[in-house]
Computed example of a mutant assay.
Amino acid sequence: MKKELEDTQVALEASHKVIAGLTEIGLSMSKKIERMKVKKQKVRENHVECHQKFQARIGDWEEEPEEEPEEEEIEDIPLGEGEIDYE
């Protein structure tokens, strides 16, 4: 009977150690998961910010360049006899 009691005691202690170890692992994993969620959110925010900046630059590039004023058309006036063309 004493042997069975000792065996039970050893088994209980071993079970408690396993449970404590698994609990510690679970808490550690929970902390890591939480840090990963925070990091993922920061990455997502940075991506959105970067995308917005990129879109703004594309918008700048796509803007129509200012048109240069068209030169006024000057009608060619035929030269008369003996006139000199100074152009």
Rank of each mutant, 00 (worst) to 15 (best):
G21T: 13
V43H: 12
E70Q: 10
F54D: 00
K39R: 07
A11Y: 08
G59T: 00
E62T: 15
E24A: 02
N46I: 08
A20N: 06
Q9N: 12
P78D: 06
R35G: 03
E63A: 06
M36R: 12
M29S: 02
D85N: 07
I77V: 14
S28N: 15
E6N: 08
D76W: 02
Q41T: 13
A11R: 15
S28A: 14
V48F: 01
Y86K: 03
I77A: 04
I77H: 04
I25S: 00
I33C: 08
R44I: 10
E73C: 06
V48Q: 01
Q52R: 11
E62D: 14
D60H: 10
F54N: 02
L79F: 07
K32G: 08
A56F: 03
G26H: 08
E73W: 12
Q9M: 11
I77R: 03
E72V: 14
I74E: 10
A56K: 01
Q55V: 03
P78Y: 01
R35P: 04
E62L: 15
I58K: 05
S30Q: 09
E70W: 03
A56E: 01
E63T: 12
S28H: 04
K31A: 11
E70R: 12
R44G: 08
E13P: 00
E66H: 11
K17H: 08
E83S: 06
E83K: 13
I77E: 07
E68T: 09
E71T: 13
E34D: 14
P65C: 05
S30N: 05
I33P: 02
L5P: 04
I84A: 05
E13C: 00
P69Q: 11
V48L: 10
Q9K: 09
A11E: 13
